[in-house]
Amino acid sequence: MKTLHKLVLATLILTSLTSKGQQEKNPNVFLITLDGVRWQDVFTGIDTNLLNSNYTHNKELLISKYVGKSEEENRKMLMPFFWNTIAKEGQLHGNRTKGSTVDLTNKMLFSYPGYNEILTGKADDEHINSNDKNYNKNVTLLETANASELYRGKVAAFASWDVFPFIINDKRSGVPVNAGYMDAVGALNEKEKFLNEIQRQAPIIWESVRLDVFTHHFAKEYIQKEHPKLVYIAYGETDDFAHEGAFDFYMKSLQNTDALIADLWEYVQNDTFYKDNTYFIITTDHGRGDGVAESSKWTSHGADVQGAEHTWLAIIGPGISKKGEVSNEQLFTNQVAPTVAEILKLETNATNTPAKPLELN
């Protein structure tokens, strides 16, 4: 009997170790979104029309920080990680001046519908037509991953906007979501306790959106402790600064977000769990206008704003061909979810995610 017990115990241990080894071998994905960032800002750098408009309050400072001798230099000054790292080691899609177009398929052209499209691979204009805090009836790729054997308990989401628990449907999906001004929970380290303490002591500009630096560090602490396989991080400041017409802060926030993503990438490249086995997929939930007229107003987006359907996409990782800035193509935002599913080898319902994955090679 003792021999049988030992055999059973050994089998269980071997099965556990095999499962753990398989889980660690499978790739990791960091899906990252920047709210309401235009393709123009990513690919051409600072908008000189907006720089010279009433939206700018300190023109000289912006010129010193973001204006070089060419558009190529401008975009490197604004987003150095994108153009010094991703452009060399990965792919950038969405420069419409080079015939690379990335578009939304939903017709709402604002945040909740955009995030639903990114996370589920399908627009749902019938049911998702507001930013109200309604639990999403659609199943996101985060929920699909968390329900799978390989990724159960290895999925997490961090967001600046407090609507994300509803978008991800944390109650049904079981995916841990830290969003808005939610505190970190569980067995906390000293840094997490400190973040809990200070996130509401810092200036509260918007009650529904916390500063991205807190979202970033809550995410990074969790990642270091738990090593999730699929992480979703939704930075939010850029859209809110743009809505307020604060072009100075929009530019600074975009540069800061680029630096936060660079910080995550550097961590990943120095962590044995993630190194050489992790993909970053970065995009936005919608575009916005490029002018001052109501039909194309930079501060706005939505179905009545020209250009709000135009997005962009950046990818870097071990299985990604180094194409850099891609030209002459048509991609859609609904391809993000099936692409993540393909990387993670997740089984999805084809009727729920009809879009084709991106060709990464």
Results as ranks from 00 to 15, higher is better:
residue 321 S to P: 07
residue 197 E to H: 13
residue 195 L to Q: 06
residue 114 G to P: 02
residue 21 G to F: 11
residue 156 A to R: 00
residue 121 G to T: 03
residue 16 S to R: 08
residue 21 G to V: 10
residue 29 V to G: 02
residue 10 A to P: 03
residue 132 D to G: 10
residue 185 V to M: 10
residue 6 K to H: 13
residue 136 N to A: 04
residue 348 T to A: 05
residue 213 V to Q: 09
residue 261 I to C: 00
residue 112 Y to K: 15
residue 175 V to E: 08
residue 189 N to T: 01
residue 239 D to Y: 03
residue 151 Y to H: 12
residue 330 Q to Y: 09
residue 152 R to C: 08
residue 159 A to D: 13
residue 88 K to S: 11
residue 59 K to S: 08
residue 147 A to N: 15
residue 202 A to T: 14
residue 288 R to P: 04
residue 112 Y to D: 04
residue 94 G to D: 03
residue 175 V to C: 10
residue 219 A to T: 07
residue 163 V to Y: 12
residue 360 L to N: 02
residue 186 G to Y: 05
residue 258 D to C: 00
residue 198 I to N: 09
residue 16 S to M: 12
residue 140 T to W: 09
residue 254 L to P: 00
residue 244 E to H: 08
residue 178 N to Y: 12
residue 239 D to P: 06
residue 329 E to H: 11
residue 73 E to Q: 15
residue 143 E to N: 14
residue 326 V to W: 04
residue 40 Q to Y: 12
residue 134 N to H: 10
residue 324 G to C: 02
residue 137 K to V: 05
residue 187 A to S: 14
residue 151 Y to P: 07
residue 170 D to W: 03
residue 188 L to A: 05
residue 300 S to W: 11
residue 195 L to Y: 13
residue 215 T to S: 08
residue 248 D to P: 09
residue 106 N to Q: 01
residue 230 L to Y: 07
residue 77 M to E: 02
residue 63 I to H: 04
residue 163 V to F: 09
residue 251 M to P: 08
residue 50 L to N: 09
residue 165 P to C: 06
residue 171 K to A: 10
residue 42 V to G: 09
residue 350 A to M: 11
residue 40 Q to E: 14
residue 49 N to W: 04
residue 100 S to H: 01
residue 333 T to A: 12
residue 133 K to L: 13
residue 157 A to W: 06
residue 267 Y to S: 02
residue 71 E to Q: 14
residue 159 A to G: 09
residue 225 K to T: 12
residue 349 N to T: 10
residue 46 I to W: 01
residue 129 N to W: 11
residue 167 I to R: 03
residue 31 L to W: 03
residue 123 A to N: 13
residue 275 K to E: 14
residue 216 H to W: 08
residue 82 F to W: 13
residue 8 V to R: 13
residue 177 V to H: 07
residue 207 E to T: 14
residue 315 I to D: 06
residue 349 N to E: 13
residue 37 V to E: 02
residue 7 L to M: 14
residue 96 R to V: 10
residue 109 L to F: 11
residue 157 A to L: 15
residue 143 E to L: 06
residue 281 I to R: 07
residue 257 T to M: 01
residue 44 T to H: 15
residue 75 R to T: 07
residue 265 W to I: 00
residue 257 T to L: 00
residue 125 D to I: 00
residue 271 D to A: 08
residue 102 V to C: 12
residue 361 N to D: 15
residue 223 I to Y: 06
residue 336 V to Q: 05
residue 316 I to E: 05
residue 143 E to M: 14
residue 3 T to F: 04
residue 116 N to V: 15
residue 26 N to R: 12
residue 273 F to Q: 12
